[in-house]
């Protein structure tokens, strides 16, 4: 009995040792030489493999960084400037400072604002719903609410709001990787400049219909009236196809455009409450 056990242990040990020796030599022989800095750079990256940089994962991005002679075209949106500085330090290059960005869903067509005119009953993804028709409301541009962006987000930065019918982005968690931008079949999501305290002034609408039509489908639709464009002193607002757009790189957060919008399509977020004159302005806008 004990002899058997000893034999067994001995045989297994011999097999194990010889396999280890063979493997060691094979590994030596077939070793692929890699720039050790690739590993270092990869280490410095967040390791989310989200693809927000445009490469297939962090490793590919690290390889591109090592190969590159200057880092101005390369940016890890997740890690931001800090990470890029670290990468630059490893490679002995200069990092270019980039403004942090944050995703925003340009539709405010919640249940209250945009009545449902039919009921969708298919596979619950935006991609499939949008492939058969324009959506549960009469607005063909608006959010479908089935959460393809939510499914695409690797960072839990999007919450589905059944009460609203439109998902919400959690600014503090968003790393601007752009996965949701790709996933949205209605092209509603935009990566905008991130201002301090997540303040933002933005046209929450993508409706390109003529004013009357747009207004009928959704009470907070942009009707392309152009009042905000006139109000803006920084040329940040442009009107195209009956739709206003605020360029976040030009916007100075003065908020002048918000009260002039007759449909409340421009929304401001995370500002302290306004002090004066809001009453009058409101009256004005309803009188229009």
């Amino acid at each position: 009995m004990s002899i058997t056990v000893i034999y067994t242990i001995a045989t297994l040990s011999v097999i194990g040792t010889s396999a280890a020796v063979i493997l060691y030599f094979v590994a030596q022989k077939f070793k692929v030489h890699e720039d050790p800095r690739i590993d270092q750079v990869e280490e410095a990256l967040p390791g989310a493999n989200c693809g927000g940089c445009g490469f297939a994962g962090c490793r590919a991005f690290a390889e591109a960084c090592v190969k590159a002679s200057d880092l101005s075209d390369l940016n890890c949106p997740v890690g931001g400037n800090e990470t890029m500085n670290n990468v630059a330090a490893i490679l002995g290059l200069e990092a270019v400072k980039k403004d942090p960005r944050v995703a925003f869903i340009r539709c405010n067509g919640t249940c209250d604002h945009r009545p449902k005119t039919n009921r969708y009953d298919g596979a619950t993804t935006c991609a499939i719903a949008s492939s058969i028709y324009s959506g549960e409301s009469d607005c063909q541009y608006g959010c479908l609410g089935f959460g393809d962006c939510y499914d695409a987000c690797e960072f839990d930065a999007i919450e589905l709001r059944a009460d609203l019918g439109v998902p919400k982005i959690i600014d503090d968690k968003c790393v601007a990787c752009g996965a949701c931008v790709e996933a949205c079949p209605k092209d509603l999501i935009e990566l905008r400049k991130q201002f301090p305290k997540n303040r933002k002034v933005v046209v929450a609408c993508r409706n390109e219909d003529k004013g009357g039509v747009a207004r009928k489908t959704c009470s907070v639709a942009c009707i392309g009236c152009g009042k905000c464009e006139k109000e803006c002193k920084f040329d940040a607002i442009t009107i195209k196809n009956n739709l206003a757009f605020i360029d976040s790189d030009k916007c100075k957060l003065c908020r002048k455009c918000v009260p002039v919008c007759p449909t409340n399509a421009i929304i401001e977020e995370n500002f302290p409450p306004r002090r004066v004159a809001t009453e009058d302005k409101k009256e004005c806008s309803t009188a229009n």
Binding site: T117, N118, R119, S131, E136
Partner: peptide
Amino acid sequence: KLLTVSPS
């Protein structure tokens, strides 16, 4: 009632 829309 709202009409139902679904793929074939």
